[in-house]
Write a protein that binds this DNA or RNA. Structure first.
Lengths: 224, 224
DNA sequence: GTTCTGAGATCTGCATCAATTATAATGCAA
DNA sequence: TTGCATTATAATTGATGCAGATCTCAGAAC
């Protein structure tokens, strides 16, 4: 994008930022499982760093919600209860509805055409049983709408929240009816995007995400 | 056995949590102004602590968005540009719309009655020119709806975001027309709450917050 | 007036120490 | 053996001295 920021910006200046990224990957990949304790000396050795940047990284990840701090007992990978996951999905639905509403203000015809292409590719992938491609294209559609909202604050909160419930890759289990409904909702979404009807699109988007709650919750497999 | 807590409220396990709270207060009260540089040694002395917990607190506040880090130059109080404030208001509008939608599922008649009482008191306060009471009651109404959403995740994000654009107290400047519209929207909101019509209430709430954008943005007085 | 330079201040990260607390290991009684 | 209390060990929290890197800014050189 734009690395034109004068002076401060993209360069990996902070060691703890590097550590945050690496730990995030460890958590998301499942290498560090939920409720796994974080051992300070083990990780300092693993990363080849001292305690100072590691501790800063731990505090940052705890603030983001990926770790939880246990006073005088260190930290552990956060685990989410079923109800917390459902809460988060409601919030995500709200954020996507907001993005959809905002996107209608400034989205271009080209962007809508791109979403439509992704949608058709997604249908093809589903019929071919390529769940990986299906999942990736579905996400790409939602991310395109988020990007079209032209709201970095919204996008940041969305990324942080969805990052917390998307650990490693999941096989998506949907019934044929669920899939058919999702497809028809996508098609209606494209219509509403063309009409730039943000209000109606927001309502539809919220319902669309909500309908996926059982799928997401099931695949997460929380144990709290 | 006889462990008496040292007077400062709840069991503050972490020193850096204490520091985070105190610094948050300093920023919100305006004691630390936007763009003010954070001096490590000055604050360690001021708080009577060492660098370790202070540095952790700075990282936490930066993650929350209240501070921004300047590599090799420390940190400063974050300042928001006009467009960032407008972005945040859109997100807040989305969060409140989500809360309104969810509240319709489980809100009790008593809670609705409480909101109605606050609304009437707010109208009285406005007519009496008591801007402080008006502001406080208005906020209390919105917080009641947020609480009725029964979604702690949503509430947390909302609190964090609104905390970033609500520094100290402001005199609310609204035209008579803006006020009249806000009042009629509140009354319509109460109707929709009674009808438990979440979908319509979400749409109204989003528009209601949006209409306040110029007021909030003006009072914030950002200088990026 | 502009550019260069260097001293001082500040920040980042490392290593280590002391104090507190949690976890285990052990010993003893029932 | 089992349950409980005591002790020993380990881990965490917080403080601090130190080295290297970077920024700031005044003063010199052009």
């Amino acid at each position: 994008m734009n690395k034109i920021e004068p002076g401060l910006g993209i360069n990996r200046r902070y060691l703890h930022d590097e550590v945050v990224d690496r730990m995030r990957d460890l958590i998301r990949s499942g290498d560090l499982e939920p409720r796994a304790r974080i051992n300070e000396s083990e990780l300092t050795e693993r990363f080849g760093i001292s305690r100072t940047p590691l501790r800063e990284a731990i505090k940052i990840l705890a603030t983001e919600g990926l770790l939880e701090l246990l006073p005088n007992r260190g930290a552990r990978v956060a685990s989410l209860s079923q109800s917390e996951i459902e809460e988060m999905i409601e919030v995500i639905a709200g954020l996507e509805a907001t993005a959809a509403d905002l996107a209608c203000r400034t989205i271009t015809d080209e962007e809508i055409a791109g979403i439509e292409r992704d949608h058709h590719a997604m249908v093809v992938a589903w019929k071919a049983g390529e769940e990986g491609a299906y999942f990736s294209l579905n996400r790409s559609i939602h991310e395109a709408i988020m990007a079209a909202s032209r709201n970095a604050t919204l996008g940041g909160i969305y990324a942080s929240l969805s990052g917390r419930i998307q650990r490693s890759r999941y096989a998506v289990h949907q019934t044929t009816e669920q899939w058919a409904q999702a497809v028809s909702e996508h098609e209606r979404m494209i219509e509403l995007l063309r009409a730039r009807d943000g209000e109606a699109l927001a309502v539809l988007m919220r319902a669309h995400i909500r309908a996926k709650t059982p799928v997401i919750a099931e695949n997460f497999g929380a144990t709290s």
